[in-house]
């Protein structure tokens, strides 16, 4: 186990290195950061001087080498826009996204399991078909449209929900300002998390249904029926446990999709998290921040996948997490 974690850690470092290299090589495609720093009428000469000062004119490998040297000391460079170390900016924005993802995950888990199981047990019932139909509608409505509709109905028309931002925050410690502990903060969380859930929930309902139906057809469930076990016990203990495996895997992978959708959701709700930061960084060509963001996300992915693999090994003893033959 320990060796496994050490190896994964080394792999994470490798992933971050690759990301930084690719990120560095494509950053010029985002645009010229100097453009966002100066007014439009500033002369070319002044802009050139600024580029020189920021070291943007140096050859690629000199810039990259400088970056690596600093990165060894935990310094990923300074965000042009926030005028602060990029790491600080990312850490200060991360809690917002984490809280949003956390609440969304809870919503997804709470709703997808019963709905998915129901649809699997009674696939022909009208309600099941309704759920499955609704889930398709959920997937095909773009998340920003859902988001703006929510704002329109609950903030503008009914006036019961706040339209943007995170509301009142409580300082937990370090970079963490939380909206989970105030009424106002929770109210601000409701609509963004519903918008995000609308995309993720259908996928999980369908997945659980599909896996569960498969398991219900399997021999050992038939055996259980034959043995005369109670239906509830068969459904929730025997069948459901075996549907979990693929659901966990897909869940880990879907985190990527979730991050992609936080970008859209956060920008509609002016939710000051990582997704919002990413859009801002792209728009302002804040390349340092962008590369740091990518590295951070890469690290998170390795972390999540390591966790998924560990859980996987726990749930399914046939899979040895050492991955060795």
């Amino acid at each position: 186990m320990f060796a496994f974690i050490v190896r994964r850690f080394l792999q994470a470092v490798f992933v971050m290195l690759v990301i930084s290299l690719i990120g560095f090589s494509i950053q010029h495609q985002i645009g010229d950061p100097v453009r966002d720093l100066v007014g439009i009428s500033v002369s070319k000469k002044e802009r050139e001087a600024l580029r020189e000062k920021l070291g943007l004119n140096d050859p690629f490998f000199i810039q990259y080498g400088r970056f690596l040297k600093k990165a060894l000391h935990g310094d990923l460079g300074r965000s042009f826009f926030y005028k602060k170390p990029a790491v600080d900016v990312i850490l200060s924005k991360a809690p917002a996204t984490l809280e949003l993802v956390f609440v969304t995950s809870i919503l997804v888990i709470v709703f997808s399991i019963p709905l998915g199981i129901y649809c699997a047990i009674f696939p022909k019932k009208f309600l099941s078909r309704l759920i499955m139909g609704a889930s398709v509608v959920g997937v095909s409505i773009p998340v920003f449209l859902t988001a703006i509709m929510l704002i329109y109905i609950f903030s503008v028309k009914l006036g019961v929900m706040p339209s943007f931002g995170r509301g009142e925050l409580v300082h937990i410690g370090g970079y963490w300002y939380s909206g989970l502990f105030t009424w106002d903060g929770l109210k601000h969380l409701v609509m963004p998390s519903i918008a995000l859930t609308s995309i993720m929930l259908p996928l999980f309902v369908r997945l659980i249904r599909a896996e569960m139906m498969e398991v219900l057809e399997s021999e050992y469930i038939r055996f259980a029926w034959a043995k005369g076990l109670k239906p509830k016990r068969i459904w929730f203990v025997h069948a459901f446990k075996n549907t979990l495996l693929p659901v966990i895997t897909v869940g880990g992978v879907q985190l990527g999709t979730l991050i992609a959708f936080t970008i859209l959701t956060e920008s509609v709700f002016q939710w000051q998290g990582l997704g919002f930061l990413f859009v801002e960084a792209v728009e302002r060509a804040d390349t340092t921040l962008l590369v740091s963001y990518l590295i951070f996300v890469g690290f998170v992915f390795v972390l999540i996948n390591t966790l998924v693999d560990i859980i996987y090994g726990l749930v399914n003893p046939m899979v040895r997490i050492t991955g060795k033959k």
């Binding site: 903030s155 006036g159 801002e280």
Partner: peptide, 15 residues
């Protein structure tokens, strides 16, 4: 508030 629609919604809702 960067998003146009959200900015307008914030005004309409009195935020």
């Amino acid at each position: 508030i960067k998003n146009d629609a959200t900015r307008v919604a914030a005004l309409l809702s009195g935020d």
